[in-house]
Design a protein around this nucleic acid. Structure first.
Lengths: 375, 375
DNA sequence: GGACACGATTTGAACGTTCAAATCCGGTGG
DNA sequence: CCACCGGATTTGAACGTTCAAATCGTGTCC
């Protein structure tokens, strides 16, 4: 209730509380950590004393004695380096906000990129953190193997595509998301839905493209190859690619894109052809960035908060990531009873804006959201 | 050199090192913290042992004994809340990267917004951090006063406009930045330069607007009121405002904007009037966001890395922020000799792209940067 | 009525480091 | 020859908490 008395003299310790409550050190400790051991009456006394004195346990002392930091390292990189870009910033923020009530925290760190493992090792060696959150998982990433070998707990945001046998990841179901986008466009009356994606070979890109196919086939549409086109993550190239698409999209067509930047290219191409965004050609982007908001672009938004919550659950679930997929028994991964899930695949939501609304009426400034269901 | 032996059994402690080097506990400690006390030979022996064993001091033990965490709290808020938006994410990243070599770190936290101070108090009370980085300083912010009262060290990113007497801040000189933008446009041959800013009353906005005036008057141009127009941070309103401007800007004109979003509005207006961006009308934005990059928009970039470095210096400079501005002596704030600066006002740099290039020639895809000098 | 179990609480020790003070030792001056 | 100095190093204690084991009652069973 009362904020701690302003830094007057020495800190309040567990011993002060014990004296005030007329009990021993350890009883106070137990009141905090194992309340079931105390008589109800005693517990109350102790809590009163804690409030009176404004006691808060010293984290460093706890870490030292418990031999664990209850903290996790979160690698960040000065801009440009990671293609994940700002999504990761958002994930960091959400993980911070979702941290289990004051029981754990995040420490940011920025290892030198040519001595990545050394940076992780350092943080671990000092006991500053117990484990890590890996913000992305690039191809050929040395970190998962190393961490596994060391027996260090970690979660990754993004599947570990290299190692399908590993659990301990959280990811967004891009495939289901894109499918949602396709279905939305079809339901809006656009007759053909094309795909503007990245070049083959990126797991994330390929996954999203599959969602496009899913959406078409599930609705009884067929997709000929001319309706899919690819571009690297660059505005002018994306614009050129989209223009190729537009030639094939007579009438009321639409384009689903692997990113908001690609979608921006599509929008430019539409303008160049003197077509009207939404009214003539629908567009859906991915990530719901500032660009999407600014341009009234319908876009798929990654559910970062739920992802963050799942990540904490995974970190808590076991301090040991283990390979799974035992050949013997059919893996019923979702047991129940404390047997926590060690993977989470979350469906994006669709933020609907004017770029996917054929009629200028409807919800003009309003913003709607739909959640896809993971297949 | 060698990474620590893989978590085999117990941790390596200072005592192990001492034994290996044939010296005492404290000597090892001194080797790390007060090397000048040791004989050269001994120092070498100890370092050898440290490397051999892969010793890294336990942070929790240090924190406990030293009675300081060497860590600082960095408040983050789930998106939407802060208008500073993603700049703050960038600042967090840069501060992490600029952390004085492993001597301090950042802990993120997300207090409940209606119990803000409580969140700060909690973090402090547990000894988890020694102080804070305040990512923004809103009007009527309760935090600076409270922290001051508690004697807690902190830096703010952004001047404390409410309390000009306080030091301990780092900020970007928006005024100098905008002036740079104006001068750049004039030097490119645009004849008139208009201002698209935010409504009066925001300190940041007013400051940037002043930079526009600076730029014009310094170049012998005069600014009539019709050349400045304002809009809230919203695309359609910004577009409308920019269109008003365009009517007055006959010939080769240009628009400097208080943000990239406003600049986007300007770009739209330019398109609507069938003018060519850059060639007919120049535009400069502010913050050099993804939008700017995607649209080839010349924009002012906040020097986050230098700002982060300055912030660390301020945190280190004294563990007590103090009011300054003693009436007696003229304040020569920049003494020298260890008397560290407790404020830093840093000039943005201009990232030049096609939107401020009248000739389609010049540097086509190339990107140039110019630094403004703080007045 | 004594052995025993069990709930509630306390005591001793330890986590790994640094502070403060003590010790050791060769050298110097009276 | 002894007192004293100062550089180099060591020893004792403490930082604030939790683990592990001990203690203290009270009640139960045979």
């Amino acid at each position: 209730m009362a904020t701690r008395p302003a830094r007057q003299g020495d800190r309040v310790t567990i011993v002060d509380v014990a004296a005030a409550a007329g009990v021993s050190r350890q009883t106070v400790s137990n009141a905090l950590n194992k309340p079931h051991l105390l008589a109800a009456e005693t517990l109350e006394k102790v809590h009163a004393a804690i409030n009176d004195l404004g006691f808060a346990p010293n984290v460093a002392a706890q870490q030292l004695r418990r031999r664990r930091a209850s903290a996790y390292g979160f690698e960040v990189n000065p801009s440009g380096a990671g293609r994940m870009g700002h999504i990761l910033d958002g994930f960091l923020v959400e993980m911070t906000a979702a941290a289990p009530d004051h029981a754990a925290h995040l420490v940011t760190f920025a290892p030198e990129l040519d001595r990545l493992i050394e940076g992780y090792d350092r943080l671990l060696g000092t006991g500053l953190v117990d484990g890590f959150v890996l913000g992305d998982t690039r191809h050929g990433d040395p970190r998962p193997d190393w961490l596994l070998e060391q027996g260090v707990p970690f979660v990754t945001f993004g599947r570990i595509w290299d190692r399908p046998d590993l659990d301990g990841w959280v990811d967004v179901d891009g495939r289901a998301g894109v499918r949602l986008g396709v279905e939305h466009l079809l339901s809006q009356g656009y007759e053909r839905v094309a795909w503007l994606g990245w070049p083959d070979g990126s797991p994330v890109g390929d996954d999203r493209r599959a969602g496009w196919l899913d959406g078409l086939t599930a609705s009884g549409h067929d997709a000929d190859a001319s309706m899919a086109v690819e571009s690297v993550q660059d505005l002018s190239q994306a614009t050129a690619a989209a223009e190729r698409l537009l030639r094939g999209l007579k009438g009321r067509g639409a384009i689903v894109c692997a990113s908001d930047l690609l979608a921006l290219g599509a929008i430019r191409a539409i303008r160049n052809h003197d077509l009207r965004l939404g009214t003539d050609i629908g567009v859906v982007g991915f990530d719901d960035t500032d660009v999407a908001e600014a341009l009234s672009l319908t876009s798929l938004r990654q559910p970062l908060r739920p992802a963050a919550e799942a990540a904490w659950r995974i970190l808590a679930s076991g301090h040991q990531s283990r390979p799974h997929g035992i050949p013997g028994a059919a893996a019923t991964d979702d047991e129940g009873d404390g047997h926590a899930e060690r993977t989470a695949l979350l469906p994006p939501t669709l933020t609907i804006r004017a770029s996917s609304t054929p009629e200028p009426s409807g919800t003009p400034t309003g913003r709607t959201t739909r959640r896809s269901s993971t297949s």
